[in-house]
Design a protein around this nucleic acid. Structure first.
Length: 400
DNA sequence: CGAGATTCATGTGAAGTATACCTTTAGGCTTAA
DNA sequence: AAGCCTAAAGGTATACTTCACATGAATCTCGTA
């Protein structure tokens, strides 16, 4: 591309008016002024957490619901209001929000407590300290608050799956030793049956109160989208039917509002990039592909080397009708030799397959082939359009 | 022919090891009085 | 003498390995009809 051409492109970009009035309204972290269709839940949460304003410990709270049903946004919404009121009333109240899914941030006991302590302003090294030492620091900073601390643990199911439920138990018991402060837990889970596999003691203490977030239906998603679109876009840039289509797509997937918003935003971005001044229906389809692709690529990029190599082995077997752990491991060893990396044992390899499965990149289910043993049947859950790009990235970063 | 034993390939749990990183401590060096 | 830096010691979490045992249905075995 010649220089003049590039400059021409920039000029065109600047001349072209953006379709967006305020893009951040469509971002998933955005907390709107008004939350539609969640009045019941919000009232309940507010009622349960309200004692915090009188410096009493609120009940621990447990929120269930599929992804994109507004759990997180409702909690954040209430957190904002609560902290606001607390500040004006001079009540010492602290709300900590932490997403447990974040790998290498909050997926073990140590890391979780360390992160919480950091949030309260005391730095904790990533490793090296005894866990009870970290607990002590945590204790101290909590005690310094001299008030109620509400800890919101988003995607708590992920944490428990990886690190066990003692953490929660410990957290609920911390209160017994606190003199000047109290902590209350708010657990958020996408997994509806998660609590059933919990230690009964933990379960009873965590879910003193429970609130279920039902999925939105297509109509509700539409109103949500409309509300946000009005703020996010300039007048008349959305073709008729686009909002309905986004809502329909999302409703198909258990009423995931987050997904609907993302679809709308990405569709508009694509249209804008192509210099259109109208977001037409076809961009919604493109957006769906792009979102899927970006999500996969993001996950893949951030994997550690060994996981990448594991995934690459599976990719190169993806032509085969059935992939079994043993076969994948053979291929994996070959690649290890090629890039002169010391291969992991099959034991660990098996665990990594399990981890990749949890991430939703692959699908691995344990089957018994009777006389021919027991193994995992592995398949990729990467779409056709995305696979080449994924392989490319793996190849690049692995230098195969 | 059918119930029970066998078998295979790998899942899975527990315990041990290597590595990277933390704090503490002791010793040595510098500095200022 | 006090202050500062460095290196070693002692300790931890995490990722991984080693060892050992568990799994579960296709297949085999063998007694019975």
């Amino acid at each position: 591309m010649s220089e003049t051409k590039i400059i021409g492109l920039f000029e065109k970009f600047l001349k072209k008016e953006s379709l967006f009035e305020n893009k951040s309204v469509l971002q998933s972290q955005h907390v709107p002024e008004e939350l539609s269709h969640r009045d019941d839940q919000i009232d309940q949460i507010a009622a349960i957490l309200a004692p915090a304003l009188r410096n009493d410990k609120p009940s621990n709270l447990f929120l269930y619901g599929k992804t994109g049903t507004g759990k997180t946004v409702a909690t954040k919404y209430i957190s904002q209001k609560l902290t606001e009121v607390a500040r004006t009333q001079g009540v010492p109240l602290k709300i900590l929000y932490l997403n447990c899914k974040l790998k290498r941030v909050a997926d073990t006991e140590y890391r979780l407590i360390a992160e919480l302590t950091r949030m309260l302003g005391k730095n904790i090294p990533f490793t090296g300290l005894p866990t009870d030492e970290v607990y002590n620091s945590f204790f101290e900073v909590i005690e310094q608050q001299k008030g109620v601390v509400i800890i919101v643990l988003d995607e708590i199911d992920q944490l428990v799956a990886k690190a066990g439920d003692d953490i929660i138990y410990n957290l609920t018991r911390v209160n017994a030793d606190l003199k000047h402060s109290q902590i209350a837990l708010v657990g958020i889970s996408n997994d509806l049956i998660f609590a059933d596999n919990l230690d009964p003691r933990v379960k009873s203490s965590l879910s003193e109160e429970e609130i279920v977030f039902p999925p939105y239906n297509a109509l509700q998603i539409q109103t949500i989208l409309k509300n946000r679109a009005d703020k996010a876009f300039k007048l008349d840039v959305i073709a008729p039917g686009v909002i309905q289509k986004c809502a329909a797509y999302a409703a198909r997937e258990h009423g995931d509002a987050r997904r609907a918003l993302e679809l709308l935003r990405v569709a508009a971005e694509l249209a804008e990039r192509e210099g259109q001044d109208l977001v037409s229906l076809k961009y919604v389809d493109h957006a769906e592909e792009k979102i899927e692709k970006d999500r996969m690529l993001e996950i893949v990029k951030t994997q550690p080397q060994q996981h990448k190599l594991t995934l690459y082995s599976i990719c190169s077997l993806s032509e085969a009708p059935k992939i079994y752990t043993g076969d994948a491991y053979e291929v994996y060893r070959e690649y290890c030799k090629q890039v002169s990396m010391r291969p992991l044992t099959q034991r660990r390899f098996s665990d990594i397959i399990g981890e990749l499965d949890m991430l939703g990149i692959i699908n691995a289910k344990v089957i018994s082939k009777g006389r021919y043993g027991r193994t995992r049947e592995i398949s990729l859950s990467i779409g056709k359009h995305t696979l080449p790009k994924v392989e490319e990235i793996l190849k690049e970063t692995l230098m195969v």
